[in-house]
Amino acid sequence: MLGEGILKGLGETARNFVGSYVSAERLTTIQYPEERIAPIEATRDFPFLVYDGADWEAGLRCVACQICEKECPPKCIYIVKSTDKKPDALGKLQIYPVRFDIDISVCMSCQICVEVCPFEAIKMDTQFELSTTDRFGGLLYDRKELAKSNEYYHSIHPIEAKKVDAHLAEEKMKADAKAGAAAAAAAAKAAAAPVVAKPAVPATPAAAPAGATQRAEGEKQG
């Protein structure tokens, strides 16, 4: 019969229309600003810098190694290294970024900076309501705007953040053990030859964690 197919199709539409009143499964949209869907843990949009402790400037994990700047495909990261050193979260002296800018109007949220960072210093945010009337300065984030606490990181990516913390604790333990062993060796050496020994010299290579050697390799390869 001519028109049978059309009627069949219309029946399908009618079923869906009526169904939307009785089954919640057929209601697929929500009223956005008032209602929100539950956030998905793995969601990412723009990067931020993680800091430990209360003071964002002192606690930044970033050591300005510039790997992310080099690897960023659209080149939206701009870093200026410091000339002096200050103690980082693990308590050893490190270079820190004087400037760390990300132009999020250029950033394409690819997560490569997160993957290549050996210090777990840069992570992806989930905040997406970032519209501003200032399209140049307003979308160029400096390190103060980018710095977010580790607690915030835990609140948006709980599973991933736990893994990262465990990894960092392990690194710290290794570094401490290494430093302890080196200090003991230095002490023994100092006892054997008190004339040549200088306490500061053995402490420096011993304090360098796995990350620092990784960074040196990275610079060679890049």
Partner: peptide
Amino acid sequence: DEFENLLRGNEILM
């Protein structure tokens, strides 16, 4: 199935 019912036999589409 739903998609096919909706479209496959539709005379206008054919």
